[in-house]
Amino acid sequence: MRRNKKERQQLLKSTIKENPFITDEELAEKFSVSVQTIRLDRLELSIPELRERIKHVAEKRFDDEVRSLPIDEIIGEIIDIELDKSAISIFDVSREHVFKRNQIARGHHLFAQANSLAVAVIDDELALTAKANILFTRPVKENERVIAKAKVEKIDDETGRTKVEVTSFVNNELVFKGDFVMVRSKK
């Protein structure tokens, strides 16, 4: 059903407020208009693009939760976290993250996303990487979205060490796996 511009923009605002992670493509389909129309509507309404909305929601939601490092030092954007249990972040690979000759992401960016997520999931003021065993399973290309998932495997209060497994995916395909041993304050 086609709506007039004013009605569509009102619905657009409420839809994005309800789900800040909705894409312009999904909005265009929902309102039966072009992606360009959605972008123009967002511009008129001063609604930022998806990446900025995700960042804003994550900063607002997780800034008080993450204790081990400032939220702006995390590589990628945290979209979910339960301290000492699990965390998820997303990282969009852009031109600045890839080699010019083949558009393959530099490995240190994928490692940094995984490592900073392993630090962020620790419920302590101090969390440092003591050891990492990593495996890259396939190259990641420019414009791909990497979703990293951290899972706390074991907490040893006696030694102050925590084992965190991080797996990273592009479209449900494993691209990186890391086992991190993190040092934290002894409680």
Rank of each mutant, 00 (worst) to 15 (best):
T23E: 03
E96K: 15
L117F: 07
D63T: 12
V35D: 00
E25D: 10
A58E: 02
H97T: 07
Q113R: 12
E77C: 14
E65A: 11
D63W: 08
F111H: 07
H109P: 01
S68C: 08
F91I: 04
D41M: 08
E77L: 14
R106S: 06
H108G: 05
E18W: 12
A114I: 07
E52D: 06
I75C: 07
P48D: 01
E52I: 06
R95W: 12
H109N: 09
E25I: 11
E18V: 04
A120K: 09
S34C: 01
L45R: 00
I74Y: 01
I38C: 03
R95M: 06
L27K: 01
F31A: 04
A118N: 02
F21G: 00
A87F: 00
A112G: 15
K17T: 11
I104L: 12
K17M: 13
V57H: 07
R42P: 03
P20R: 04
R95E: 15
L27I: 10
L43Y: 14
I75K: 03
G107Y: 08
S89E: 01
L110P: 14
L110W: 12
F31V: 02
A105N: 03
I71S: 04
R51G: 02
L40Q: 09
S86E: 09
L27W: 12
L50Q: 07
F62V: 00
L40F: 14
I88P: 04
I88R: 13
A105M: 15
S86N: 11
F111C: 06
L117D: 05
V98W: 04
S68K: 07
I104M: 08
I54G: 00
L83K: 10
I79A: 05
S32E: 13
Q36K: 12
E77P: 00
N19I: 09
E25F: 09
D80Q: 09
A118T: 04
K100A: 15
R106D: 07
I75H: 03
D24M: 09
S89R: 06
P70Y: 10
N19G: 05
I71N: 02
A120I: 14
A87L: 04
I78Q: 00
P48M: 10
R39C: 05
V98D: 04
L27V: 10
F31N: 01
F91L: 10
D24C: 15
S32A: 12
I79Y: 05
V35K: 06
T15H: 06
Q103K: 15
I104D: 01
S86A: 11
A87K: 02
V121E: 01
S46R: 10
D63G: 10
A58M: 06
Q36A: 11
A114F: 09
V121W: 02
E44M: 12
